[in-house]
Design a protein around this nucleic acid. Structure first.
Lengths: 359, 359
DNA sequence: CTGTTAGCGCATTCAT
DNA sequence: ATGAATGCGCTAACAG
């Protein structure tokens, strides 16, 4: 009957008995090599290997130490879309770089709807969370805060007591709009990314704009509006077409077509992201319009692809990778040189707004 | 002195006492709503919320149940590079889609070198692992196998007893080479991705090729060689330039330049991935060569970008996203319709090999 | 429908 | 340098 127990997983104690030492010694052999003689350690490790013991059970160890060695990452969107977006991907690169250096793992936690969020966030074995672009009223935020562990927010939400990494979206967007206006493009059109969580695609009215739950999109609009107003144009008269991230470049294409078929036809398009601008580029091409002669286009984000398309894309560059790296560093308690967590942005002028410029 | 204990984290038992019920009842309130009366559940949950109790401690729960609700994913490369590669990204999309549906989290485990691998893999709290393109002798494989939990391998390694998802790289590569040969391109050049783990960039000799540790690259070369040989050409005379994934498109650019400056200049380039082919496209442009007239280029993988560049890229399309989805389904025990795990590939002819074709 | 009991496998005192 | 004892917080049997 003893044998029937053999299928149980093998533990520290089993190894200890087999090696003729105590549990402590085996534990030390794995975790604190300096606490025992090399010979003993060798032997214990050998016995362990022979028994097929892979090392201390991670769950038990976590329970005991209260540490998991992982950080949790929560996206606002469905994961496959997040992984489809060059901006999130760049962010992930930054996070993963730091995690790798710190030997920490990265737990991607699905939080699509409130039900899933409840389960997955509650059960995530992590030492802290990164909130990436999460709308303020999201259930996920409540769940994360409940966990009472270190949290950092990227782009959204802005919560007091919680480190925030982001950019000055409004100021940056203002710069983008000023650029077009300075080129004498006064008939503008705006392509917006998600303002709400409803995957709506189409024209945006004042009400929808005012109640926007995504901070980035809202602030970028405000920045555009600042510049437009300063140019003596009524910002509320500038048409906005929204297209959800999940509709990808095709959605942006459709939005741009809608914009470019208006009368008067816009001579400048402000796209709230480079992906959207890419769609606009194609739409212009599709309509036989020349960029930038007939219509100038300015993106936002500064994804690598923006420099490679033809015409190359004028954009607001933000430090995408660095954002992820800093977030991870803060969460992992790695001292980082950055004093401010509002990162710098920069207008990069390229061919989509000024012929022959840039690469 | 009782109070000094207050800073301890609050447990199921605390909630039970405060609510005047037993631990089981509280546990049930969270995990099995059907096991107690709605009123009691409401009350318990209310008390818990009031006390700031976020739900059962995940570590303790995992230890008890033996389940983590997460799967582990291991890449061969440094994480930032993995997140830079459209092929891995597409794979991730597939994995994440299924994880999201199954409410499972995804743990990205760094396994850069053997030391890190040991630690992180040993301590990963997961229910199973996906090995993605891991060279056969990798320490990571040993560590994962030790854990004695469900494993699936994607692309590499091929291990008996372990589900494998991949494609017939050799056959697919043969098709690519046949395509160029059928267009009467007999002076070929090959751009290879990593054959070894040493980030080498430069020409590849027979020895290096023979000892390659990355299965995909090796098999793709063999496929090319099959077709080349069948065309009456000595495959060992076809120049190969290797460039590591970590060098990105720039590396491919350099490799292609090297190839295109040879005499005789290749009239066809076989790139082992679309990213490499993209570099070749730029190199040709840079040298003032016309594609496909002066040099035809064929990629591999079928990443979305391949259809969008100009000239668009002829390539071997493989079901990148589906690969990830199937791997996750198998690991999570989700019955999937696929009977075979060697997925289909398809030659997509576009402008980089046949003028005016494709999009 | 509710409460009692018994570990899950480990790291960590404190002795020796 | 090593061993014995304790409890991390929880869930699953079982008994009421």
């Amino acid at each position: 009957m003893k044998q029937s127990k053999a299928r149980k997983s093998i533990t520290l104690l089993d190894v200890a008995r087999a090696a003729g030492v105590s549990r402590t010694t085996v534990s030390n052999a794995f975790n604190r090599p300096d606490q025992l003689s090399p010979e003993v350690q060798q032997k214990v490790l050998a016995v362990a290997k022979e028994m097929g013991y892979a090392g201390p059970n991670p769950m038990a160890r976590m329970l005991r130490t209260g540490q998991t060695g992982a950080i949790g990452l929560i996206f606002s969107e469905a994961l496959p879309y997040a992984f489809n977006d060059p901006v999130s991907i760049a962010f992930l690169q930054g996070v993963s770089k730091v995690c790798e250096q710190a030997k920490a793992s990265l737990l991607i936690v699905p939080a699509l709807d409130s039900d899933v969020a409840q389960q997955t966030i509650q059960q995530a074995a992590v030492d802290g969370f990164i909130l990436y672009c999460i709308p303020d009223e999201s259930e996920a935020i409540v769940r994360v805060l409940e966990r009472q562990m270190p949290v950092v927010a990227v782009d959204q939400p802005v919560l007091k007591g919680i480190p925030f990494i982001g950019i000055d979206d409004r100021q940056a967007a203002r710069t983008a709009a000023l650029h077009l206006l300075s080129l004498n493009r006064r008939d503008l059109g705006i392509i917006a990314m998600d303002l709400h969580n409803d995957s709506y695609a189409g024209p945006v009215d004042a009400q929808r704009l005012k109640s926007a739950i995504f901070r980035n999109a809202l602030h970028r609009w405000r920045g555009y509006a600042d510049a437009i107003q300063a140019a003596g144009i009524d910002p509320t008269l500038v048409p906005i077409e929204e297209t959800p991230n999940s509709h990808g470049v095709e959605g942006a294409f459709a939005a741009a077509i809608a914009l470019l078929q208006r009368h008067p036809r816009p001579t400048g398009i402000l796209a709230m992201s480079d992906m959207l601008a890419l769609g606009a580029l194609r739409a212009a091409e599709n309509l036989g319009l020349k960029v930038p002669e007939d219509v100038a286009i300015v993106g936002f984000d500064g994804i690598p692809l923006a420099a490679q398309v033809r015409p190359s894309l004028t954009t607001i560059q933000q430090p995408l990778v660095e954002k992820g790296a800093i977030a991870a560093e803060i969460l992992l308690g790695i001292p980082n040189k950055k004093t401010t967590l509002i990162l710098e942005t920069k207008l990069i002028v390229r061919q989509s707004s000024v012929k022959g410029s840039g690469e």
